[in-house]
Amino acid sequence: MTTNSHYCPLAFVFIMIIIYPHVHGECSLDCGSHGGRCLQTKIPDMSEICSCPDGTYSNSTCLDVADGQENNVTSINIHARRLLAVCEHSFCGDTGVCIVIDSTFGCICPDGAIADRCTANTNNAFISYCTGGCLNNGVCNPLTGACICPSGFMGVRCEIARSTDLCRDIVCRNGGVCNVISPTYATCWCLLGFHGDYCERQTVAPRCASSRCYNGGTCYEHSPASTIFAYCLCRPGFIGSRCEVEYFRCPTNGFYADAYGCAQGKYFECVEKTIIISRSCPRGLRFNFFLGRCDYASNVACPAL
């Protein structure tokens, strides 16, 4: 079985039956009374998981799924999570099987172990270029030991600047165009009525006194050159010129894709199950919530809106 197939719930039921005899020892995780079973793993910071009767896996309890706690989540959020949660970027090898566990993934290895990756020889060492730290906002890939570089930089530690590459994977919104301003900086030039790092903000009124922002949005005045105009800064999970559309709610704690800001490297962190924090990757990178870190844009498929 290969790892480049898409997530299939029916396949997980078959996998669950195969791997269960390989798991030994006592599990302390309460997987609920709906037929969930606790499995021990070798995944760092996730020593136990629940194998649920619907073919999914959870690091908490199957009651989260059985009780329908995702019913209040908007369809666009569910679409974003499922579209990105595929196993083609896993490190399970040609003979390991990738499984989705809430906001991360695991591997069912040929020896029956459930781990963060499968290797023929776990003692094999690899050269780590990012143990000394990545430069210029580069992101370390702990599985390969290489640095993932933002737009405009390259090299094993992202130490080489390439001005001609500064607009790589920078996606401007609302008709904006990326332009190189200096040897180390590029920005989006926006059409009239839009501004922001990615032209994501829209003018709503000449001044805040005549503007109204909904759903807890805050009005700010922007004064480029001699002009002044107002715009609404929306709370995370809301969009629209006046923050009138809600498109994301936290289903539980963890990291989630931002369907509207994905191409700009935006993603959400949910804490205390209801608090949404907006996060951002270095310029030109996107958050691969399947791997739990920022990654090259070519490795992350953003949801179609």
Rank of each mutant, 00 (worst) to 15 (best):
C199V: 03
G196V: 05
N179R: 12
F194P: 03
C213Q: 11
L191M: 12
S163A: 15
S211P: 01
R212A: 12
G193T: 10
R212H: 14
N174Y: 03
C172H: 02
S211F: 05
R168F: 07
C208S: 06
L166T: 08
R162D: 13
Y198A: 05
L166C: 13
R212P: 04
Y185M: 10
D197K: 09
P206E: 11
V177L: 07
V204D: 05
A161E: 14
N174E: 09
P183R: 10
E200N: 00
C172D: 00
W189S: 12
G193L: 06
T184M: 11
N179C: 04
C172N: 02
G217P: 10
R207H: 12
D165Q: 13
D197L: 09
G196H: 03
E200Y: 02
C213T: 10
I181L: 15
T184A: 13
S163W: 01
P206H: 05
N215V: 07
C178N: 09
V171N: 08
Y198Q: 02
A186K: 04
N215Y: 10
Y198T: 01
V204N: 10
G193R: 09
T187G: 10
C199K: 03
G193I: 05
Q202T: 15
C167W: 07
E200P: 02
D197R: 12
R162S: 14
S182F: 07
G193V: 09
Y214V: 00
W189F: 10
Y214P: 01
Y198G: 03
C167Q: 06
N174W: 00
D197Q: 14
C167Y: 07
C188S: 01
G176P: 00
G216R: 06
P206N: 14
T164K: 10
Y214H: 13
N174F: 01
I160G: 06
Y214K: 13
T164G: 11
D197G: 08
C167N: 10
C178W: 05
C213H: 09
T164L: 09
S211H: 03
G193W: 06
R162L: 12
W189K: 11
E200F: 02
V171A: 06
P183S: 13
T203M: 13
G176L: 03
C172Y: 01
F194C: 02
R168N: 14
P206F: 05
D169C: 01
S182I: 04
C188M: 02
R207C: 01
V177W: 00
A209L: 10
G216Q: 07
C208W: 01
A161N: 15
D197F: 05
T187N: 12
G175I: 09
D197S: 14
A161Q: 15
T164I: 07
A161K: 12
C188G: 03
I170Q: 08
C208Y: 07
C167D: 08
N174I: 01
T187E: 15
V171P: 04
G176I: 00
V180N: 10
A161C: 13
H195V: 05
S182Q: 13
R168Q: 12
T184I: 15
N215T: 07
T164P: 04
A161W: 04
R162Y: 09
L192R: 14
V204E: 07
G216P: 04
